[in-house]
C-alpha cells in the first residue's frame, strides 16, 4: 500500500510537470507571418471609385446572381456579403471626404476558419487562397463562429447548403489568370501578386506620397497577417474595419488548450488508476456487498 501511495504521488507530480510544460508550449510567442511567399491582393482605397466593377465580375466568375442595378454603395448604408455575393463595396464619409472600402474574405495567413474546421473543408492552399471544399463540409458552421471578419456565409434556405466566401479565385489563379475582381477593376485599385512584394509596394506608396496615406497597411499584422492588404487615406476604423483585432493569429487562442490534450490523455488515466489502487485497499466498512 505504501508503494501505491508513492506511485500515486509520483504520477501526481508528473502530471503537474506535464501540464506546466503544456501550458508553456501553448503560451509560446506567436510567430508573425514569416512565410510571405503566397499570393495576396493589395487594395488601395484611395484609388477606388466605387464603380462595383469587382462586384459584377465576381458574381459572374463564381456563378452568383447578378448585382441589382439599384443596389449601389451609399454613405450611411452598410451592404454586407452574404450567400449570394462574395464581395461588396461600401461608401464612408470620413475626415478626408468620401471613400470606398471593399469587403470580402481576407485570406488569412493562418485562418481561424481552417483551424476551426473539423473536416478540413476550409483549407489554406499553398497559393494563398482559403478555399471551401464541398465534399468535406458537414455544415456545422463553426468556421462562422470563429472567423474574426465574419466572412463564411451559409445557405440557410437550402437542403444541401454551401458555404459562400471569396476564395481569391482559386481556380483562375491555378490556370495562371488573375482573380476576376483584379482583372475587372478599371481604376487599378487592386493589385494581385506575391504578398511580400505587395507589402513592399504598399510601403513604397506610403513613403512616396506621405500626405496621401494613413501610415498603416491593414492586414500586414491583423489576425496574424492576411492575404488581402488595404491602403487608405484615413484610419481604417473610419472605413468600417475592425482595428482592434489581435495581431496574433486566431488559431493561437486554442493552441494552449489543444496542446494540453495529449498530456491529459497520458497522465489522467495513470493518475486515476493510481488513486483507485491507493484507495482500494482500505477496509471496506461501508461496502454494501457483504
Amino acid at each position: 500500500m505504501g508503494v501505491d501511495r508513492r506511485n500515486f504521488l509520483k504520477a501526481l507530480g508528473l502530471t503537474g510537470v506535464a501540464l506546466g510544460t503544456g501550458k508553456q508550449l501553448g503560451a509560446a510567442p506567436a510567430e508573425s507571418v514569416e512565410d510571405d511567399e503566397f499570393y495576396g491582393i493589395l487594395y488601395d482605397s484611395t484609388w477606388c471609385a466605387g464603380c462595383q466593377g469587382c462586384e459584377i465580375a465576381c458574381a459572374e466568375a463564381n456563378g452568383l446572381p447578378e448585382v441589382p442595378l439599384e443596389d449601389v454603395p451609399e454613405v450611411g448604408k452598410i451592404r454586407k456579403t452574404d450567400e449570394h455575393r462574395r464581395t461588396v463595396i461600401n461608401a464612408y464619409e470620413t475626415s478626408q471626404g468620401e471613400f470606398f472600402m471593399k469587403t470580402q474574405c481576407m485570406q488569412c495567413a493562418q485562418p481561424a476558419c481552417a483551424a476551426a474546421c473539423l473536416t478540413k473543408a476550409m483549407y489554406k492552399t499553398k497559393d494563398g487562397s482559403v478555399i471551401w471544399r464541398e465534399n468535406k463540409c458537414m455544415g456545422c458552421r463553426y468556421c462562422m463562429i470563429s472567423c474574426p471578419f465574419d466572412m463564411p456565409k451559409f445557405e440557410y434556405h437550402s437542403t444541401n447548403p454551401k458555404i459562400e466566401k471569396c476564395d481569391m479565385c482559386f481556380e483562375r489563379v491555378k490556370e495562371g489568370k488573375v482573380p476576376a475582381c483584379v482583372e475587372a477593376c478599371p481604376a487599378e485599385a487592386l493589385t494581385f501578386g506575391n504578398r511580400r512584394e505587395l507589402i513592399a509596394e504598399a510601403r513604397r506608396r506610403i513613403a512616396e506620397f506621405p500626405g496621401m496615406y494613413h501610415d498603416v497597411i491593414y492586414g500586414e499584422h491583423e489576425a496574424g497577417g492576411t492575404g488581402w492588404l488595404y491602403l487608405s487615406a484615413v484610419p481604417f476604423d473610419e472605413l468600417g474595419l475592425n482595428t482592434k483585432l489581435q495581431k496574433k493569429s486566431y488559431p493561437e487562442l486554442t493552441k494552449g488548450f489543444l496542446y494540453s490534450v495529449p498530456s491529459v490523455f497520458v497522465l489522467a488515466p495513470a493518475l486515476l488508476l493510481g488513486i483507485h489502487s491507493a484507495t482500494k485497499d482500505k477496509p471496506a466498512k461501508e461496502d454494501d456487498n457483504e
Binding site: T119, N135, K136, M138, G139, R141, F154, N160, P161
Partner: peptide, 12 residues
C-alpha cells in the same frame, strides 16, 4: 439536426 450537411458527419 443542426448540421447543414448531416450526411457528411462521417467525415471526421
Amino acid at each position: 439536426l443542426d448540421l447543414g450537411r448531416p450526411l457528411k458527419i462521417i467525415n471526421p
